[in-house]
Design a binder for these strands. Structure first.
Lengths: 225, 225
DNA sequence: ATTGACACACTGTTATAACAGTTATATCTT
DNA sequence: AAGATATAACTGTTATAACAGTGTGTCAAT
């Protein structure tokens, strides 16, 4: 049953990769709910690898903020408290504002066009029940592309970390009806970045990030784990 | 010879902790210079633990940016290229500016006084050959304390990561004579944070971080590994 | 009935050893 | 002598198993 462990040419899939992707999936799907203990042996059994790679997978998840550990006790799925969500959003604000600043100073026309297309779709496609998955993915891709276009590997890395915890919170709490963007929300952000003024770009991004803050905090407060 | 592995009461020192601290020390001391390959077996031998904890230690070092890895080849001490240093400084800027913003809005009088004392020492003690170690430590503590007073665990964590790579770069390149602070450099920063205006605090911090940028980049460019 | 202690069934931790690539060197062939 | 091939000595990777705490439930004594 080691079908997934094959070395397909150049890119080598390690056992920790396998364990990580399976566990992440189950956490985001809600199969492993917040607070649930993740025993190393059981995770090894589920993912068909041994304990060693599971340790590394859990460690990565800890870096992502999806899992926490008590020494000599074990790991469990992070419970998104108001404090943690707040910390995460402040960190996200730091990263994304810096990305906006950088992009305002170095962004090619092709990059702007690509981003603007996504922004337009986000502003026009309604956030309805049947398109929620589509819209959410587009939204994630928008921010991920912004990060990548900064050309800064460290910022991209930090963003992806923060983002996973954010995705978890969304999956747990936000419903479609809660989300309603102004009509030119994302395109305005792009225009402000395009202006070439770092301060303006940053201010616009800060507003953009903070917009979701109150909503998320409220949702988290209402869901007790 | 397992004297270091004892469980001293409550706080449990794991084998990865032991390996990590030894290897970090040797990297920062220059005993393991940039580019040097760090074989897992040899690291295990040096640190008196087995290969498994060494894997975790090397992984932590990778997170810190002190070590890089090629799959199926091994780990080696990071070579601080201009690009990496630049990325790191931009990330540092993001974190520290956000910390400055937060502190401008929530900082107690005691916290301000403690920070101001360190700032005063930094501005008055000359950065001479014999006090370089002292001064550098004070400088690190200043920024570390700033991070901690933000009350945001994620930001503290991110800061410590970034900071280690920064320490490495400093250890490799900067000489005492290169560094010369304006007389009120750190106290001005504290005053700007104290003003209560997030934008002003941020701008001041940005200037503070960028001040060192040119100097470091130049030093790194001149030291080819 | 309550309380204490002991044992068992979990948990993490990590050393050993076998497996699997990579690289460099030595040997063989042309 | 030059090139190609095989081999040896590294490297990372990870499964197995033994060790070491932690918590829980049960049983006996009070």
């Amino acid at each position: 049953m080691t079908t997934e462990l094959q070395n397909t040419g150049d890119n080598f899939v390690t056992a920790p990769d396998v364990a990580y992707s399976i566990i992440v999936q189950k956490i985001l799907d809600g199969e492993f709910p917040p607070g649930m203990q993740l025993s190393r042996r059981k995770m090894a059994e589920i993912t068909n690898v041994s304990v060693i790679p599971v340790i590394e997978a859990l460690k990565r998840l800890e870096e992502d903020g999806l899992v926490e550990s008590k020494p000599k006790w074990g790991s469990y799925v992070t419970i998104p408290t108001v404090e943690k969500v707040n910390d995460s959003l402040e960190a996200r604000e730091a990263i994304e504002c810096q990305i906006a600043r950088i992009l305002s100073e170095r962004m090619t026309d092709e990059q702007f066009n690509e981003l603007y297309q996504i922004a337009e779709r986000l502003d026009t496609v309604p956030y309805a029940e049947d398109t929620i998955e589509l819209s959410r993915n587009a939204h994630l891709r928008f921010h991920k592309t912004l990060a990548e276009f900064s050309g800064n590997a460290k910022l991209v890395n930090m963003f992806e970390r923060i983002n996973l915890f954010w995705i978890l919170c969304n999956a747990l709490t936000v419903r479609a009806k809660d989300v309603e963007y102004p009509r030119y929300w994302h395109r305005k952000l792009m225009d402000d970045i395009r202006s070439g003024d770092p301060d303006r770009a940053e201010a616009s991004m800060r507003e953009h990030v903070r917009d979701s803050k109150g909503r998320i905090i409220e949702s988290v407060r209402n869901s007790h784990y």
